[in-house]
């Protein structure tokens, strides 16, 4: 059985993106174990000169390294990814490289009609940066619009079409994870490139 990390893309106490990941966690428990990961406690990234990274971040990185893949659920703030998620990704690429070649599936929820589409597009570009270089599942998008109305009191998605869509994407993601492990040829050099890559040496 696969093991995934479900990265909650917000520090908010009440989050429909957290709800969505909780739903995914329980709905697919036969197919994968999913551990939810929070980004709440991290300090504001400030490029510390000594390149030190908080212990919380190191532990998160370790868990991501160990996992077969990561599902990130992002809210949309001002047409983009929330600062708190950007912040976590900055820490998680500062001298450590847990995302390099890591299979990633992106989901997102928003209160409005667009379901965080613009934030998701940004997140793809972010995850493609040299020190993250994740393997993002292509041609897939899960947008949960009107997210405040999307769940019932048992935290189940109410729209069967959404559930069906999610099941399809999740099945694809499991296959995608296996595919990525076969894309080993570039892996060594990607990892090395990220490690040798330093913005300070440019």
């Amino acid at each position: 059985m696969k093991h995934f990390i479900g990265l909650v893309g917000t520090n908010s106490d009440h989050s429909t993106n957290r709800q969505l990941l909780q739903f995914i966690q329980s709905h697919f428990r036969e197919h994968a174990t999913i551990e939810l990961m929070e980004i709440k406690s991290l300090p504001v990234f400030n490029k510390p000169e000594d390149s030190s990274v908080p212990t919380d971040v190191k532990e998160m990185a370790e868990k991501i390294e160990q996992a077969d893949g990561v599902i990130i659920s992002t809210p949309e703030y001002d047409h983009a990814v929330p600062a708190s998620l950007m912040n976590a990704l900055n820490w998680l690429s500062y001298g450590i490289y847990p995302f390099v070649d890591k299979p990633v599936m992106i989901t997102g929820a928003s209160y409005g009609t667009l379901g965080s589409s613009r934030a998701q597009a940004h997140l793809r570009q972010i995850l493609d940066a040299p020190e993250l270089k994740a393997r993002i599942m292509p041609s897939s998008e899960f947008l949960l619009a009107h997210s405040l109305q999307a769940f019932n009191e048992d935290n189940q998605l109410v729209d069967p079409e959404q559930i069906e869509k999610l099941e399809g994407l999740f099945a694809d993601f499991v296959i995608f994870v296996d595919l990525v492990t076969q894309l080993v040829h570039a892996h060594g050099s990607n990892k090395k490139a990220a490690e040798n890559f330093s913005w300070d040496n440019l």
């Binding site: 990234f45 001002d78 600062a83 912040n87 900055n90 690429s93």
Partner: peptide, 14 residues
Amino acid sequence: HNHTISAGLKSVLE
């Protein structure tokens, strides 16, 4: 930072 603006600046704008 990582193909986007700094998290600190984004936080201010939020």
